[in-house]
Amino acid sequence: MTLTRPPSTAVSTSVRPSRPKSMAAKLIPWLYLLVPLALLLVFTYLPVANMFWYSLTSWDGIDQEKKFVGLNNYIAIVTRPELFSVFFVGLYYLAGAAVQLVLALYFATLLSFNLKFRNFFKGVIFFPYLINGVAIGFVFLFFFQPGGSLDLTLQFLGLGDLARPWLGDPATANSSLAAVSVWRYLGLNVVLYIGAIQSINPDLFEAADLDGASPWQKFRYIIAPSIKRITGLTAILAISGSLSVFEIPFIMLGGANGTETFVIKTVKMAFANGKVGLASAMAVVLLIIVVVVTLIQRRLIKDDVDVA
């Protein structure tokens, strides 16, 4: 006996040709985008364009006349040591950012699995990120002052010989300020890493347990490859943040004792010295550096695309 397909009893329907969208329907998406695009244009792109123009002038921020000087401001940034040397202060924060990312990944890996009081520890680590930067600056002024909390703690541990003027000595001032930044922003990176780790398919960890994989092998072959995107994001944030540090060193020392960062120098050049043109050129240089670093990072850390 052969099986034959019965004749179809479905009512055939003709497919109507799609009507061309009217002009109003085409304009609706652009109407929704009109307000955010206008805000983006007015508050982002126009100021950036003005900043480029100001960087080519010797404007003092007050006079209506803006004398065109070409690339003289950019040449001054490269040739004047007092302007170019402040870039090296960012190396302290860059080293601190590297330590911060390692610590964040370590704590995030621990807190992503079964651990007693892990929610409590998550809150403790993330809490500094919620505190106002001004409050943090004043708290750590008392922490680092001679005879302050840090020196008392060292004396209690029998390490009183290590006490020194942490913020008064140029040899330790930048390291101390970088440590404050690490403490403040560690929680943000921990939360980003925890979200990335918890998004990994748990079946991969179960299979690794069945194969007898060690914790290091789980991290190396499962966690690390799966969080490449977040690693790239945190790397961009760390590098751009280390180049544009302002709040902590400005509040605590105002750039004294060799702690003047590139952004602090830019702000002082614009508002204290009245050299808005030169300050704009410094801001443009910083913007270009951040963009170049971001492009390099995108080339070095490429997203793996699985093709089904």
Rank of each mutant, 00 (worst) to 15 (best):
L192P: 02
G148M: 00
D161I: 11
K228G: 14
A108E: 01
A208I: 01
K21S: 12
V263Y: 01
G137L: 00
T9E: 12
L46T: 08
P36G: 05
N119F: 02
L295P: 11
I131C: 05
P128R: 06
N119A: 14
V291E: 04
I236R: 07
K275R: 14
N189S: 13
A49H: 01
F142N: 12
G212H: 02
N189Y: 07
P146V: 10
I236P: 02
K268I: 00
M23E: 15
S199I: 11
L253N: 06
N174S: 08
L192H: 04
V86M: 04
D151Q: 07
P225A: 05
I222T: 09
T2I: 14
L286P: 07
L157G: 01
Q155K: 14
A235N: 12
A283S: 15
Q100C: 05
L56C: 06
D304N: 13
Q100G: 10
Y54G: 07
I75Y: 06
L111V: 00
W53R: 15
V42S: 04
A238I: 05
I230H: 03
L56M: 11
W166Y: 01
K302I: 07
D304H: 12
L210D: 04
L157I: 08
A10P: 00
L141S: 15
G147N: 04
K122F: 03
S199L: 07
A135K: 07
R16P: 11
F113G: 08
L233Y: 05
L111H: 01
R19D: 13
R80H: 10
G123Y: 01
S85G: 13
V263H: 02
T259P: 00
S199P: 02
P202L: 01
T231Q: 14
P47F: 00
A208M: 01
D304T: 13
L177P: 03
G90R: 06
S14N: 10
L115T: 12
L56E: 04
P6C: 03
S8F: 02
Y93A: 11
Q100W: 04
N273V: 11
V11D: 09
E82T: 09
F43Y: 07
F142W: 11
G232D: 08
S85M: 09
Y221R: 15
V263D: 09
L286E: 13
S22G: 11
F117R: 15
Y74K: 03
L233Q: 04
G232Y: 00
S199K: 10
V124C: 08
G274M: 02
K218H: 06
L101G: 06
F144R: 05
V42G: 09
A207Y: 00
G241A: 02
L295Q: 14
W30C: 02
S240D: 05
L94V: 08
A95Y: 02
I197T: 05
L115W: 05
V180K: 02
T109M: 01
